[in-house]
Amino acid sequence: MPTDLRSLLPLRPVDFLLLLALVENEQHGYGLAGSIAEATDNLVRLEPGNLYRVIKRLVDDGLIAPSSRRPAPDRDDERRRYYKLTPAGARVAALEAQRLRQVLASPAARALRPLLEPA
């Protein structure tokens, strides 16, 4: 359990994406991978090895935890484990979001905006 959450910043991008995916609701492994793929427009596709490495890292750092929620009865396998954000994890995600906002607000970042093609 880290004493100073700030020491964890900056978060690796994939770590931040995973924490974000858990803000709204608890998810299991496959759901998380799907959310992350959706959120990044399929740029970040996590294979099982990678995904669970990240999960393990975040669990070991105390930012997420296995949840006690059980799946709906129509699922065909009760083994699925769900994960939820811990209070520390929520705080770290918020701190990272704030840091990123500061980065994007800098004059240099703003000067890059015209380079984006009109959406």
């Binding site: 496959y30 991978a33 099982p48 669970y52 393990k56 083994r79």
Partner: peptide, 21 residues
Amino acid sequence: VYPRTFRAEYGDEMIDYFRDR
């Protein structure tokens, strides 16, 4: 191929994940 503790902890989930994929 994974270390035993990692496998014990996340092995089943990874297999489930692979099955869904």
